[in-house]
Design a protein around this nucleic acid. Structure first.
Length: 402
RNA sequence: GGAGGGGUACCCAAGCGGCCAAAGGGGCCAGGCUGUAAACCUGGUGGCUUUUGCCUUCGGGGGUUCGAAUCCUCCCCCCUCCA
């Protein structure tokens, strides 16, 4: 990697980014890094409020991996202090603040997932409570004096909330400043994040300058839409594909994305280059379903390996294309007295309430051995052999005689 | 500190004494058509109950009333303008 030209290195860094600026500063940093043999410090801040990392995070992690492979130093900041504030970025609401215990717990599971992509040996990890917790009121006031309210309110999400008369709390205005202070605290050379972070990154530059430090370069990666194809992938929209999803779930979720997202996923998740993308584009036009199946396979393979991807694919074809029954389904042992079907579904946790079970039956969404159930009050009595109940498209329950 | 507007189900939003488990839209779920795509059509969307029905819900507490999301009162919260 060391014998790349700066142009080549920049090309790698630039791949799949939205912003990479200012370019001159990046060039200067890279040059100096080479001359002095000191890697650049790459900041990645994580708010440990949601331990489930998804493909949206992956796009970012992959970029960090590029930089790590180029020999730069990833500095991973767990925002344990800022998590107690709640990042207002892209939010329409104030985020709940986390307790210290929650943060610690979340941070642990966070790393498990991060190290699916990054090399733990080469990743520096730190917590921002280390320096933010040490600031005195006087320090905080000094920090707050670096920015004006008007500039802070220029931000899209604040502006939107302001216009829609949704509350903005003072602590939320402080958030970008603290995040900027993080950059100063670790001497960040480049900060990496989604495009929704751009504003925070820009503020960080000002703060670094204020404290007499060379400002960081800003690198943003695109946000990807979730399985609904509309909103950005996020746990709160429940449209995410988690890195920890089972191979089967992951495969199925990819298959449910809208067609016009296929190419984007190939590009951002699988990192296809332009030539490869052209071929995929052709396939998408000719046969979108196959293109998506390939996408699903390759994404599962990326996180779970070939064998499991293969199995996930077979599972999908069997259950959803041939409408057969999957092999691993929950089992419910029937009471010897016999029980109402709705009670069984409720007790087995297949439906959240008995009313829900009733509704589903009424609408033909419940099948026993492929036959729709029409009787809401169907009672399951002694069985000579197990029966399989299908609820909706993907919920199954096997009921066995005692 | 003053004046005004507002808080309704997952979200937006109507209702402003009984016909309100609460219009409409979005989302979501199920069915149809499909490729677990999109679009479209149909139905559903608090809980319990076989139907009747019962219970809990309209920021929170008290009250008026045969009866309250709707009226009164106190409290909490949000927004706007003025200071």
């Amino acid at each position: 990697m060391k014998n790349l030209s700066i142009e080549e290195e920049i090309k790698i860094i630039q791949k799949n980014t939205v912003d990479l600026l200012p370019m001159e500063e990046l060039v200067a940093k890279l040059k100096r890094s080479r001359e002095k043999g000191i890697p650049l410090r790459i900041k990645y801040g994580a708010d440990p409020s949601r331990p489930d990392l998804h493909l949206g995070h992956y796009v970012c992690l992959k970029k960090l991996k590029d930089l790590q492979d180029l020999g730069h130093q990833i500095v991973f900041i767990v925002g344990d202090f800022t998590a107690m504030i709640g990042d207002p970025s892209g939010k329409s609401k104030t985020r709940p603040r986390l307790s210290e215990e929650e943060v610690k717990e979340h941070a642990r599971t966070y790393f498990e997932q991060v190290y699916m992509v990054l090399d733990p040996e080469k990743t520096e990890v730190t917590y921002n409570s280390k320096w933010l917790g040490a600031l005195t009121s006087k320090d905080v006031i000094e920090l707050a004096a670096t920015y004006t309210v008007a500039r802070m309110l220029e931000r899209d999400d604040f502006k939107m909330r302001f216009e829609k008369e949704i509350p903005i709390f003072i602590h939320e205005l402080l958030y970008p400043l603290f995040q900027g202070y993080d950059s100063y605290a670790i001497s960040s050379d480049i900060e990496v994040g989604g495009t929704d972070q751009k504003f925070n990154f820009v503020i960080a530059r000002d703060i670094q300058k204020y404290y007499g430090q060379e400002p960081q370069v800003i690198l943003t990666v695109p946000l990807i839409e979730g399985t609904d194809g509309k909103l950005k992938m996020s746990k709160s929209y429940d449209n995410y594909i988690a890195l920890k999803d089972s191979p089967e779930d992951m495969y199925g979720k990819v298959m449910s994305i809208p067609d016009d997202l296929i190419l984007k996923y190939f590009k951002l998740v699988l990192y296809y280059d332009d030539d490869e993308l052209k071929k995929v584009e052709k396939l998408v036009k000719e046969n979108p379903r196959d293109a998506k199946a390939r996408l699903a396979f390759e994404i599962v393979q990326l996180f779970h390996g070939y064998e499991k991807a293969k199995r996930a694919e077979e599972h999908f074809n069997r259950v959803f294309r041939q409408k057969e029954i999957p092999d691993n389904i929950p089992v419910y042992k029937l009471d010897s007295e016999g029980e109402l079907l709705i009670d069984i579904l409720y007790k087995a946790g297949v439906v959240p309430s008995k009313s829900e079970a009733r509704r589903l039956i009424r609408q033909g969404g419940v099948k026993i051995n492929s036959e729709p159930v029409t009787n809401e009050t169907l009672e399951i009595k002694k069985l000579s052999e197990p029966i399989v109940v299908k609820v909706g498209k993907r919920r199954f329950l096997k009921i066995t005689p005692e």
